[in-house]
Each structure stands twice: as structure tokens, then as C-alpha cells.
């Protein structure tokens, strides 16, 4: 029997992206630069998170024409973002035949209580998470890929590190528990017992986990990979820097050879200006994107 849109088919694409870099692009030219630099996929959006942060206002799904333009420009997978809980935007993106939907806190949430029921879709979803419970709730809703949220558009990697350590530390803790302790732990994590038991038995999430939010340098990518990420999303970090092409190539190379400090050192040299950063510790609570979603 032939089946489309099974969980195995959805999470299968994420499996193929592992060890790779997914880059935010706002037009076909940037998408081509990303593809030539070795990106394993691109995220099509109208404004990178750094600009969304500056512009303020409501951030929504991108113009379909813009997404189609990027789909026509590259052969690698094209992802696009919908607002948290905005299942109609997700339906539009599925109709556009995007390869992955990012239900993203970078856009302004459309629903303050509910995320999209991702089981309703044949297109796979990636969702952000700041801790293990949040990651498992998204997977319970049908997410086929998880990314640590970090703090998008800042160039400050500290929140991504916090989230990676929180998720991987939570997994290590589950592995150490007795079977009869997992019931209460599921309650504490506010996550389905079956998923909690699966993680405890397997020592990892049941889907691929990338890092996102604030990655701006090859060493940032290496750091997140060493902390247990399967790959990295780079948003504003590339096309808000002085030499996007060179930086894109460098981050791709550092992600593959993340354990080889000689390689990371070599590709880190002469990259020009990194994106101007915002230390997340200076942001007010209302400016933090990571607290969107629950």
C-alpha cells in the first residue's frame, strides 16, 4: 500500500537535513547564494527576524509570490513560516507545496492558547521549544522536527545554548529515572506519558532536533552541534553580516566539521563584520520571542 504524509515520511525529510544548515532568505538571489554555499534547505520569509524586531508591528506569513519565486530558484527544500496556531496560514503554505512549515514564534502568534493540530496536514512541521516538556507537547501535536528556540534576530547565542542544555539535560534526566517515576515526571513535564517513556527508553527525542536563534558565527554552529543539535538554522546571522556568501560557506563547513577545531579556526578567519548583535539580557520581557508558544 502506498501512503503519503505518514509520520515516517514527514520526519524522514528532517532526517535528511541533519548535519546541515538551514538559512533564512528573503528573495531568490539570497536563496541561490545559500544553495551554492551548501545550505541543506532555505527558509523563505519576507523579513529576517532582526528586521522584524526593528520594524515591530504584526509579523505574518510571507507573500505566496515571494515563496514561489524562491521555490523556482533552488532545488533544495524550501520551508516557510506560519504564525503559531494559524492553521489557515498553514493550509495556504501546504497548498503552495512548501517542503516544511515552521510554526514560528518569530511571527506574531495568532492563537494564545492552541498550536496548530499538525496531524491534520500532510506537509511536515518544525516547531520551537525551550525545554523538554515543550518539545514533547509539540511532537504530541504532530511536529516532525524540533528546533531549540533561542532568541531570533539578536546574534546572541546564549538563549539557544540555554534551550539546548535544557532539552538535552531533560533527556538525560529521564534516562536516569526508574520506570515507576516516569508517571509523575510526565505530569511535571506536562507531556504525554507515552512520549516521556519513549524518550527515557531511547535517550533522545523521537524526531530530529536543530538549534536556532542567535547563531552568527562558525564557532556558534560548532558549539550548538557539540551540545547535541542535529543541525542549525541561521536566520539573520548570514544576510545581516558584511560578507554573506563567505559567512554562509564558513558556517556550513563548521557544521560538518564541528568536532575539528582546526577547520572551525580556519573558516572563522577573515569573515568581515558579523551581524550587529543585541545582548538578550538587555531585552525587556515583551521583546522576547522565546516566551511565545507554551
Amino acid at each position: 500500500m502506498t501512503e503519503h504524509g505518514t509520520m515516517r515520511v514527514k520526519s524522514g525529510l528532517a532526517e535528511m537535513l541533519k548535519g546541515g544548515v538551514i538559512m533564512d532568505v528573503v528573495n531568490a538571489e539570497q536563496a541561490k547564494i545559500a544553495e551554492e554555499a551548501g545550505a541543506c534547505a532555505v527558509m523563505a520569509l519576507e523579513r529576517v527576524p532582526a528586521d522584524i524586531r526593528v520594524d515591530g508591528g504584526v509579523a505574518r506569513m510571507s507573500d505566496p509570490d515571494m515563496i514561489k519565486g524562491i521555490q523556482a530558484a533552488v532545488t533544495i527544500p524550501v520551508m516557510a513560516k506560519c504564525r503559531i496556531g494559524h492553521f489557515a496560514e498553514a493550509q495556504v503554505l501546504e497548498a503552495l507545496d512548501v517542503d516544511y512549515i515552521d510554526e514560528s514564534e518569530v511571527l506574531t502568534p495568532a492563537d494564545n492558547l492552541h498550536h496548530v493540530n499538525k496531524w491534520d496536514f500532510k506537509v511536515p512541521f518544525v516547531c520551537g521549544a525551550t525545554n523538554l516538556g515543550e518539545a514533547l507537547r509539540r511532537i504530541a501535536e504532530g511536529a516532525a522536527m524540533i528546533r531549540s528556540k533561542g532568541e531570533a534576530g539578536t546574534g546572541d547565542v546564549s538563549n539557544a545554548v540555554t534551550h539546548m542544555r535544557s532539552i538535552t539535560g531533560g533527556i538525560r534526566r529521564l534516562v536516569s529515572l526508574r520506570d515507576d517515576e516516569l508517571y509523575t515526571e510526565a505530569k511535571n513535564l506536562q507531556a504525554p506519558l507515552e512520549l516521556v517513556q519513549w524518550v527515557a527508553a531511547n535517550g533522545r527525542l523521537p524526531v530530529v532536533m536543530f538549534t536556532a536563534g542567535g547563531i552568527a558565527t562558525p564557532a556558534d554552529a560548532s558549539l550548538c552541534m557539540q551540545l547535541g543539535a542535529d543541525g542549525v538554522f541561521v536566520g539573520s546571522g548570514i544576510f545581516k553580516s558584511g560578507d554573506p556568501e563567505k559567512r554562509a560557506r564558513a558556517i556550513v563547513e563548521a557544521t560538518t566539521h564541528y568536532m575539528d577545531a582546526d577547520v572551525v579556526a580556519r573558516v572563522s578567519a577573515g569573515l568581515g563584520e558579523a551581524m550587529v548583535g543585541i545582548a538578550t539580557s538587555t531585552l525587556g520581557a515583551s521583546d522576547l520571542l522565546e516566551s511565545r508558544g507554551w
Binding site: M1, T2, E3, H4, G5, D99
Partner: peptide
């Protein structure tokens, strides 16, 4: 594209 991905 991905929507055409399948298992059989």
C-alpha cells in the same frame, strides 16, 4: 516535492 514523498 515533500508532499509527493511516500512509503510503499
Amino acid at each position: 516535492r515533500q508532499l509527493a514523498s511516500f512509503e510503499t
